[in-house]
């Protein structure tokens, strides 16, 4: 059996494609792009939350937030490691990000203005991410699927700590409630945008679904997220900023309003509130860390030389 036939057989049988297997170049490229974008998102995602570590309201919240930001770094590394099995190096992917030739999720181009935003990110942004990632545990590429399983195990902590922050604020003073509502108002639509364009507009979806890289479509995932999240907002006594949101008994789902696609494209193309700051900070951190990376190599070489002397 030739490689292409075997590949088709593996996909058809819902088995996993593994690094040594023959795969179409398009499959490899799509995976590299998607996994790299996912990895970059984890790494850039450290910035909006890192912004609040020094200002977390209690020592406990500070410890939790540090643990969460550390997890995001770890998730980025799992994903770079999965991408490397496709014959690309982590350093190359980092370079492509820095050159603006690869993207990260637009959600991180929004600022974190108040402490409630940290709650909203855990609840909504991680909630949306989990919806997507749980589906991706079934992706056809073995290393990507295993990275998703590992990440999903840790994401539950992220969403729960965020929702707990929202619970505390929602039960708090008038000002705290207002702060929680404001965070929901600002993060609701960008969270829905995380699932990407409509299926009818998404150029990547068909082929990705056929190869089973992406097992569930953008619109189906978005609906799942809305259905799960509306009761959570109701429990908090907060209002989702969408006048068209209502339960549709016939469909068994919530109907919701149209996303502002102009805003979506504006942010994707680099004109969101924080795009420049995020990239500038990332590149600066990489450049300022260069001496550490080089010193570690020099130290290792020196120790090797001392041992063999």
């Amino acid at each position: 059996m030739d490689g292409e036939e075997r590949f088709r057989e593996i996909i058809a049988a819902d088995e996993k494609v593994e690094p040594g297997d023959w795969m179409p170049e398009g499959y490899r490229q799509t995976l590299i792009r998607q996994i790299a974008q996912h990895a970059h998102s984890e790494v850039i995602g450290m910035q909006p939350e890192g912004n609040w570590i020094t200002r977390a309201p209690t020592l406990k919240r500070k410890a939790i937030l540090m643990a969460k930001v550390q997890d995001e770094a770890g998730h980025g590394l799992y994903l770079y490691s999965a991408a490397e099995t496709l014959g690309v190096s982590r350093d190359e992917l980092v370079r492509l990000l820095h050159e603006g030739r690869q993207k990260y999720s637009s959600i991180f181009n929004y600022p974190t203005l108040t402490w409630a935003d940290i709650g909203a990110i855990g609840w909504l942004v991680d909630g949306a991410a989990i919806t997507n990632q749980v589906a991706l545990t079934r992706t056809s590429y073995g290393p990507y699927s295993r990275a998703m399983v590992r990440i999903c195990k840790e994401e539950s902590f992220h969403q729960r700590q965020g929702y707990e922050i929202m619970m505390v604020l929602a039960r708090g003073s008038e000002e705290q409630r207002a702060m929680a509502q404001d965070a929901l108002d600002r993060f609701w639509w960008p969270s829905l945008m995380m699932f990407g364009p409509h299926d009818s507009e998404s150029t990547h979806s068909d082929q990705s679904m056929e190869w089973k890289i992406k097992p569930v479509s953008n619109d189906d995932l978005r609906q799942q997220f809305v259905d799960a999240t509306v009761p959570q907002a109701e429990y908090l006594g907060l209002t989702i900023p969408d006048p068209d949101l209502r339960w549709n008994a016939e469909r068994g789902h919530y109907d919701f309003g149209e996303i502002d696609w102009d805003e979506f494209w504006r942010v994707v193309k680099g004109h969101g509130p924080m795009n420049r700051e995020r990239m500038a900070h990332k590149i600066e951190a990489w450049e300022r860390g260069a001496w550490v990376r080089e010193a570690a190599v020099a130290h290792a070489a020196k120790r090797t030389a001392a041992r063999s002397a």
Partner: peptide, 18 residues
């Protein structure tokens, strides 16, 4: 996190694979 970011002009098409 999430990553359904559509491709736009200037974004890398192919990765050489170093």
């Amino acid at each position: 996190m999430s990553y359904s970011v559509p491709k736009i002009a200037g974004e890398s098409d192919t990765i050489v694979g170093r």
